[in-house]
Amino acid sequence: MSTPLVKLEKVSTGYDSKAVLRDVSLEIHPDDFIGVIGPNGGGKTTLVKVILGILPPFKGKVRFPSGKPKTGYLPQASQIDRTFPINVKELVSSGLKAPKGWFPHLSRKQRQKVNRMLEEAGLENLASKPIGDLSGGQLQKAFLCRALINQPQLLILDEPNTYVDKNFEQELYAWLKKLSPDKAIMLISHDIGTITPMVKSIACVNGGLHYHPSNQLTEEVMKVYNCPVDVIAHGPIPHRVLKTHDS
């Protein structure tokens, strides 16, 4: 077993001393692809924030056994102010750290990297557009570029499929599939149907966290942990998500 990138040990956290998550333990390994599901208000985003260090734990520990990993993060669309005067290129650039020094500007190499990333995503013609002018799909793509540009070891995506059309969703998942072998990915979604075929394991978050080390969910598990999720999958190829365990 590899050393985990992140280790949550009995973490409780929340807002204003009101706990949203209680006694949550989780390990994220370098080759993991975890799908995080659960009802609204169950603590999915809270889990992300405690891993990212935005929210401190009330109790328990968040540990990084092999040092803090480089992390890419795509926030929930509703957290973003789309009217803010920032363009696509600036947005993607914000995912890079400027070289240390008194003048925190990007190096020429880093600026080229931003251009390459925009080309790869097919956003080069939108580079100087303000983010408010983009469609939902284009905007999520730009945010994904920002999350990826620093070549993170851990990629956390908080509901990347909100406000986007089905075409983009397919493109996004193809992209994630391509990425999945060389980084740990944590994908939060309310639409379990589309994510289960890709992920390697599932974490069901509802106050607590139940880790399911495969991408097949049983009805019992969902009942016990009260994860009222969409069980019928709508992908390009129809597939069933529900299966009973062999053992």
Binding site: K49, L52, I54, I80, I86, E90, S94, A98, P104
Partner: peptide
């Protein structure tokens, strides 16, 4: 950079 980014998306900037 830090000024505009911390105004636009404080959580990501913190990360």
């Amino acid at each position: 950079r830090p000024l505009v980014y911390s105004a636009f998306d404080p959580e990501f900037s913190k990360v």
